Amino acid sequence: MRPRVVYVHGNGNKVRPELLKSQWDTALFGRDMAEASRMAYWAPVRYPEPLPDFRTDAPAGRPELVEELVEEMPARPDRAGAEPPEEFVARTLDEARREAGGTGLEARAGTDESALADWLRDMTYLADTLALSGEQDEPGAELPLEALPLPRTGRTALFRLLVKHAFKDVHAYFFGGAGPAMREVVKEQLDGLDGGPLVVVGHSLGTIIAYEVLMEQAREVELLVTVGSPLAIAEVQDHLARPPAVPAGVAAWRNASDLRDLVALDHTLRPEYAPEERVTDLLVTNDSSNHHGISEYLAQHEVRAPVQRIFDGAG
């Protein structure tokens, strides 16, 4: 039986599902995979309409929306032209609470949002540090290779948009009642597969959703691939339904991240997710504008090669 791959996308709104699937196919395989791939498209749980085809969401790693982002940032007297980090953290947390219906009463029993708020704070400070790292101290000074070709205000706005989307969607997953519907989308895409070798690929929040579904189902998966994942972060692990472990049916797990990725922050799943011999943590270079872009992750040799071996071996 032929291999199949199921994708689970990450934070933020997306283009229509068939286009998104084709983009992931192209990045990972270099071609459209037709019926061999499926996209677990949970965006409608959070967003009423998909993005237009010509727009790319900034959390995916491209700065098409920078002008709008800069306009969103309130004018402040500090050098960045943006509100101080603690004010941004407080405002983002308040917005997430309002979207969740208030106080997080729909959260899983025994958990609260304080740990997740620590993750939000850490992401925000790292975002501002990355924005500052691209600032020219002297006229004519060369920018670091990873710096965005934007004024610092634009870089700050772009990085903080990633922070906001990542946190608010994760908050909605754990506290806003969105988790069951997101997981159901993944289950629907896994249902009806013919029993051939299965690869599951998740990005960002999609790694949490995919992981929890696989923990629940114990489905046989030849390879689980997570990129830009927050699963290694203690504050996220505190909110998982089950203690961290490799899902029972997963034969191998490859986890890739860029050291500059705000969402990942912690880059090592081993040994929290036992048995650790099934897990391979990889540090890769993601040169998208926010170092979190999905196409750049999927194009990495360390990510593509094991997936392609499964498909080539079945040919």
Rank of each mutant, 00 (worst) to 15 (best):
E68D: 06
A43C: 11
R79G: 02
M215F: 01
A58Q: 07
R4D: 03
R79P: 00
P151G: 00
F88R: 05
A178F: 00
H267R: 15
P139K: 08
V236W: 05
P85K: 04
T124P: 14
M33G: 06
R76N: 08
A241V: 14
G104Q: 13
G104L: 12
H267S: 14
V307T: 02
V15T: 08
G315H: 13
T280H: 04
L132A: 13
E277H: 12
F159T: 08
E64H: 08
H291W: 07
H292P: 01
P306N: 00
A314I: 02
E212P: 02
R76E: 08
A314Q: 11
E71R: 15
E83R: 12
G30R: 00
M182D: 03
L51C: 11
E220F: 07
K164S: 15
R46W: 09
P52L: 01
V279P: 07
A299F: 09
P77Y: 02
A210T: 01
V70A: 11
G179L: 09
V8N: 03
V225K: 13
L143Y: 00
V15I: 06
G206E: 04
H203N: 05
A36M: 08
S229E: 06
E35G: 12
A218W: 13
P74C: 11
L145V: 13
R46S: 06
P244S: 10
E135F: 02
G315F: 04
A234L: 13
A166H: 14
A210C: 09
R46H: 04
Y41S: 12
V185C: 05
Q189Y: 03
E146N: 03
R62I: 12
P275V: 03
P149Q: 00
T26M: 12
P63M: 09
R242I: 12
Y211F: 09
D312Y: 12
R38E: 08
L190M: 10
V201T: 05
A141S: 03
T268P: 02
E220L: 00
L51E: 11
A36C: 09
A256G: 13
G81L: 06
A141N: 02
E296K: 13
R242C: 07
E113K: 11
D57N: 05
M123G: 11
I294S: 05
A232M: 12
D191M: 10
M1H: 06
A256C: 13
L259C: 09
P247C: 14
A127Q: 10
R46Q: 02
A248Q: 15
E135L: 03
E71D: 05
P59H: 05
